[in-house]
Design a binder for these strands. Structure first.
Lengths: 148, 148
DNA sequence: CTAGATGCAAATCGTTTGCCAGTCG
DNA sequence: CGACTGGCAAACGATTTGCATCTAG
């Protein structure tokens, strides 16, 4: 599951540049480092159960509540961002990724990051009807290279 | 809340052309007609509590479970579609609307349908990385005309 | 009439919180 | 040594289901 992914730098608990707040919580613990590492190393956004499973490989009896608490801390301090797919699943990804969107394979269900942004209007534009655009989220669906 | 919206034809329990299945359930009841009508008349996708409130205006002691059950039936028979916003809320809209996207106002939180599709690649295209695009969902954020 | 639908309450599921023991600094 | 953390279990909110009653056909 975690093999063959695009390798990102190994996660450290060093504050990433875009993080507005210094540290998630006051203490550096193994559990927190592993939660952040799992998110950082994935090639797409992860669900809480996926993060929990990854952390448990190293620290077996980690409670799911710890994962939820750590994810919340990481969100508040802006080390990670949440992504909700149209199916309703909430996933988390590193906040230091540049603008991108998500592609969910309709065959295997996995979610991948897509760097190419296929949108024509950007922040500040006025849409027909008088709506002022400030941001957008796109989810693409189709078939991933593995499933073709 | 429901004033000033784009008026759509009053809901009937007549099978809409795109619905694959004939009728939602075997019996035509007042509750079902009101659920479908509420969804059909809105100018954007509705949440279950919003639908419930609308139905209760006409049929006071309607149970929320009935709304959930009816929504599920309408989804299965393809009279309506579900929409999940990136915030995680699930909403429902009529299935007979043409291709469109959603705009959520960051001030008032309401969701509006946007007919203009600001995307450049369409079904069948191959994205960098070998992903074959089949569908897409877009949520736009900004300020609605009322809140400007 | 009678299968199918509703209303209500109990059951689930994912997520959050309270509490006490464990550990970082 | 304390305050901050983590594990576990109870609490929660949204959705689903069981069941007795009601109603469309």
């Amino acid at each position: 599951m975690l093999d063959g992914m695009k390798q990102r730098p190994a996660a450290t608990m060093t504050r990433p540049p875009q993080a507005k707040k210094a540290l998630p919580g006051q203490r550096q613990t193994r559990q927190r480092a592993r939660v952040y590492e799992a998110i950082r190393r994935a090639r797409g956004p992860l669900t809480v159960p996926e993060i929990h499973a990854a952390v448990c490989k190293t620290i077996p009896r980690t409670g799911i509540a710890t994962v939820y608490r750590t994810v919340k801390l990481l969100l508040e301090s802006e080390w990670i961002k949440s992504v909700t797919l149209p199916s309703g699943e909430t996933r988390y990804e590193s906040a230091d990724l540049k603008h991108h969107h998500h592609f969910q394979c309709q065959t295997c269900g996995e979610v991948f990051d897509i760097d190419h942004c296929p949108i024509t209007v950007h922040a500040g534009a006025e849409l027909p009807g008088g709506y002022i655009l400030q941001d957008h989220e796109i989810t693409l669906y189709g078939t991933c290279p593995h499933c073709r």
